[in-house]
Amino acid sequence: MAWKMLAETAPLDRVWMAFPLECFSMGDRPEETYAAWTGVAHAASAFVSVTMVVDPSESARAERMLGSHIERVTAPLDDFWMRDMGPTFVVDDERPGVLGAVDWTYNGWGAQHWARWSNDREIGRFVGRQTDAEIVSSLLVNEGGAIHSDGEGTLLVTETVQLDPQRNPYADKESIEAEFARTLGAEKVIWLPRGLTRDYEDLGTRGHVDMVAAFPSPGHILLHDQRNSDHPDHAVTRALKGFLSEQTDARGRTFDIIDLPAPEVQRDDDGYVDFNYVNHLVANDGIIACGFGEPAADAYAAGILGEQYGGKTVVTLDARPIMSRGGGIHCITQQQPTIVA
């Protein structure tokens, strides 16, 4: 077997999501959460089939809000961030037509004190079986938002996630890279030193890479650019740009780094925010992008995304209800590639 994680620009068969339910992530405005998650599902369904995993307690609401064109399957849930608890889909270079589903070990983003995961840790295997994929089991504690592949053997990760002592206390870079080679076909792992500042607070993931960088195509990196010198991520993003400018990919290419400026909003009631446009979903001919109620900044970011993804249609949605709960549009979706026999 030669498993390989494709680029997120590869043709998709469907996108997987999880319907919200009452838990810590819900916050104190539940209707806002339901509306944001279902809004992403409806927007993505214009470009790709969408399947929503629904906890039995939310079946009636899901049917009402999703309608008939969003497929639903039922399974017990603890939370609703599908990118992280769901499987990472892979293909087998040696067996055309075979889909694999990497079932990472999941422990609530490094055993966060507020997290529950007795149900969510089963979702990777559950979703994989729904697709008739071969289950690729892994003992590595990892989440889908913590990795980004260029589809040609290069993987972006952060040191503070995979090397987190509350995730993988006995692992080192060498053993983690070997596991990424086995499960994802990674030939070169680029270890960013960290993620965004807010991501290390209570609702954070301790540095998910999908909040800071993405591959729009091999040899190119979209990088979050915080230009406000008062914001703590100003120094972070400049350090990351300097680091990435000295790296090469699995094919030996240096990177063309495309700055994706942060939105103008800088703070909320809890301090500096990590709002960004990097955290988007590529859905066949569409891009479902985060917006922040800033027409000029949102449009500028959409223009960059459209250009970098070869003219795909960019649909911008208000992502503030999602970001305020700890992530973005990429974090609540997981892509399943189309398999050609």
Rank of each mutant, 00 (worst) to 15 (best):
T248I: 11
T183Y: 15
R194T: 14
P232G: 03
P261S: 07
T51P: 03
V98I: 12
W3E: 12
D202T: 12
H224N: 14
L317Y: 01
G39T: 11
A7N: 12
W16P: 04
A41D: 10
G108N: 07
G86V: 07
H113Q: 14
L260S: 04
T338D: 07
T197Y: 10
D28L: 05
A341V: 14
S149Q: 03
Y170P: 00
F255E: 02
D103E: 15
G204I: 08
A41E: 10
L317W: 04
T316P: 01
V273T: 12
K188T: 09
D199K: 05
V15F: 07
I332L: 13
T160R: 06
G326Y: 04
S59A: 13
Y309H: 14
P30V: 08
A18Y: 00
L66V: 14
G204C: 12
A186T: 11
F89T: 04
T160M: 02
Y34S: 09
E264F: 02
H330A: 05
D233C: 00
P337H: 08
Q308M: 15
E122S: 11
A60C: 03
C331D: 13
L184T: 09
S45W: 02
A115E: 09
G39L: 09
S245K: 11
V189Y: 06
P295G: 03
T158S: 07
S229R: 09
F255M: 11
N228Q: 00
E264W: 00
G124L: 09
G151F: 00
D256V: 14
H231L: 00
E201L: 14
E201V: 09
D269S: 11
R95N: 13
W104P: 00
G326N: 06
V136D: 13
G67D: 13
S324K: 00
P295N: 02
T74Q: 08
G271H: 03
P20I: 03
M1E: 11
W191P: 13
L281C: 10
A283T: 05
I329Q: 02
R320C: 10
Y309W: 10
F80W: 11
C331K: 14
D249P: 07
L140T: 15
